[in-house]
Computed example of a mutant assay.
Amino acid sequence: MKYLSKHVATWLIRCGAIDEMDRELYEYAVYSLIFLIAPLAIILTFGIMMDRVLESIIIIIPFMCVRKFSGGFHAKHVWVCILCSCSVLFMCVYMVTNIKYIFVLNICVVLAVTSLIILSPIDSESRKLDEGEIVRYKKVTAAISLVFGGLYCVCLLTDNITYAICIAEGIMLPACLQIPCILLKLKSKEKLGESYN
């Protein structure tokens, strides 16, 4: 991904579209664009294969909207990220057609929305957030999570169970991706406490 970002930025410089001084900015922009498009392309591929295109879109929209501001776990290597993303998104599309709505799903959605509101944002090692961004991202994550939580309720009330399950998955995914980061922070605090003793 980084190689592709650098290659595109170099091509833009050679074409005279951007200045060399702006290289880093455009590399980051291309990198962000790839990460924005990749989950959509992956899940649409699975949606087409399983004849669940609309469901795939309904899963990925809440995920992408929330994930952009909530943060969470990022794999260190691109191939690990792609492999894990493919596996998780395949399971999401597969589960839509194979799980039934149960009351436990309501509890999971409430827990996911609550944890997203409380724990967000989690910044990554590659891009640390400043104080202003943290406050803004927290508010945006809370608003988006509540909107999709509301849409989940509307789908349940209108008996659109399949779409409710899709939205539930889209909300729970970014919440689940925060868990490894929280566990790592707790582990590092624990080690820090041990070193003081």
Rank of each mutant, 00 (worst) to 15 (best):
V147L: 14
S126N: 14
S87G: 07
T162V: 14
L151Y: 12
I42A: 07
D123G: 07
A164K: 09
V140Q: 10
E133V: 09
R23S: 08
V110N: 06
L33S: 13
C155V: 05
L151I: 12
L25T: 13
T45L: 13
P39M: 00
T158V: 12
M91V: 05
F46P: 07
I107D: 06
S188D: 10
A112D: 07
C181P: 04
V135C: 02
V66S: 03
T158M: 11
K185H: 09
A175S: 15
L129M: 02
E194F: 09
E169L: 14
K6F: 08
R127E: 08
A164N: 13
C65K: 08
T97C: 08
K2V: 07
V110I: 15
S5N: 04
C84R: 03
S87I: 04
L12T: 06
M64D: 01
L40T: 12
A17E: 07
I171G: 06
Q178G: 11
I171D: 02
I144D: 04
R127T: 12
W11S: 15
K185P: 04
L177G: 08
M95W: 13
L44I: 11
P174H: 06
A168W: 02
W11E: 13
Y28E: 07
C108Y: 03
L192W: 03
T114Y: 05
V8N: 06
G47Q: 02
S124C: 06
L184A: 15
C108A: 14
F103Y: 13
V30D: 03
K187G: 04
R136M: 09
R52W: 00
I134H: 10
L116N: 13
S188W: 00
L40A: 13
M64E: 08
C86M: 09
Y94S: 01
H77F: 01
Y94V: 01
